[in-house]
């Protein structure tokens, strides 16, 4: 199975639009499965207009500290030790903030009376499955419990589910998590190719540069799609230059089109809501190009494999008394 991640650094630049439409447009020709790993804002199902699921799996993971009120003597050691600011004083009592606790054991070690306990395997998210969409392909969608830590585990689990429910699939489209944190790394690591989505704005360009560093780190051959390319021609040219310099395959561009937000409101995919719109035509062209690449994938992959493997070197500083 060829796993293709669709990534953009930040959200809101048309990543889900592209991911959903690639799945939709190629589903007639190829066996594929779509996985929405953008667990903080899963919306491929909304772009596709899918309202119900066949199965919802609850995802439990991690742990969370709590302080036993009766045993706490109010010494405040835990508050000083917590590196995440997750311990606060409420009405004179020490309380672990359930949103911020990362579940490390630090507070339990410093507590002189052992008043910190742990709750294990807390509900962390959901994996939702649609076995067969209207277009035939299955969709797997991950979502975290709002406000709680995002995790690479949930993303991995969703990818596994995607591969499990359709073992014969040739292709997996993975709507990658937003940002550059561990969830993105979990979506990119092990992908065979990435499609990067950017728009001609300064913010999107700096996001793109960050994500390119990651794809180079993982040595993932990548393509680029420029959304709303006609917004700013100067930045559009800059994007093309970046694509060139970093050996990104130029998959295509999508013009600014007000039919796109309207299609969201209609709860129908753009190509059905507005089959002749400028954006639809562009998406069709992009899907066709991708289809060509998939027909000679190994060859393409070799050609666009990032050459210089840039190992990620964390910046480490020497021991210092002020740190502990």
């Amino acid at each position: 199975m060829i796993e293709i991640s669709i990534a953009s650094g930040k959200g809101g630049v048309g990543k889900s639009l592209l991911a959903a439409h690639l799945a939709l447009l190629l589903s007639g020709k190829r066996r594929l499965v779509a996985v929405d790993a953008d667990a903080e804002a899963p919306n491929m199902n909304i772009v596709l207009g899918i309202k119900d699921w066949d199965r919802v799996i609850e995802h439990y993971e991690g742990r969370r500290a709590f302080v036993l009120d009766d045993e706490c003597t109010g010494c405040g050691e835990c508050l000083k030790a917590c590196q995440f600011g997750a311990i606060r004083v409420v009405d004179g009592k020490y309380v672990v903030d359930r949103w911020l606790c990362e579940g490390c054991y630090t507070c339990s070690f410093v507590c002189p009376v052992k008043a910190v306990r742990f709750e294990r395997d807390v509900l962390a998210g959901w994996i939702r499955i649609k076995e067969k969409t209207r277009w035939g392909f299955p969709l797997v969608s991950a979502e975290i419990v709002p406000g709680r830590p995002n995790s690479g585990k949930l993303v991995t689990e969703a990818r596994n589910k995607g591969r499990e429910i359709f073992r014969e699939a040739e292709i997996m489209f993975l709507d990658s998590a937003a940002g550059i944190g561990c969830q993105v790394i979990a979506s990119l690591a092990g992908s065979h190719a990435a499609i990067l989505v950017a728009e001609p704005t300064r913010a999107s360009i700096s996001d793109l540069k960050r994500i390119i560093r990651l794809t180079q780190h993982f040595r993932i051959p990548s393509m680029i799609v420029i959304n709303k390319y006609d917004l700013n021609m100067q930045l559009y040219r800059e994007l093309k230059k970046i694509a060139n310099e970093n050996k990104l395959y130029y998959l295509g561009e999508i013009p600014y089109d007000e039919e796109v937000p309207r299609s969201y409101v209609s709860m129908k995919p753009l190509i059905e809501y507005s089959p002749d719109s400028k954006a639809t035509i562009a998406l069709r062209r992009i899907a066709e190009r991708l289809d060509n690449i998939l027909s000679r994938f190994d060859e393409w992959r070799l050609e666009y494999l990032p050459e210089a493997y840039k190992p990620f070197e964390p910046i480490v500083i020497r021991p210092d008394k002020t740190l502990g």
């Binding site: 030790a81 990362e102 054991y105 630090t106 020497r318």
Partner: peptide
């Protein structure tokens, strides 16, 4: 270093005080 969240649990857990604090940017 890249995996470390800086939680400091190891520092408090070591029974022999063998962990010193360095930093990671």
């Amino acid at each position: 270093p890249r995996l470390c969240s800086g939680c400091k649990a190891c520092y408090y857990a070591c029974p022999y005080g063998a962990i010193r604090g360095a930093g990671h940017i």
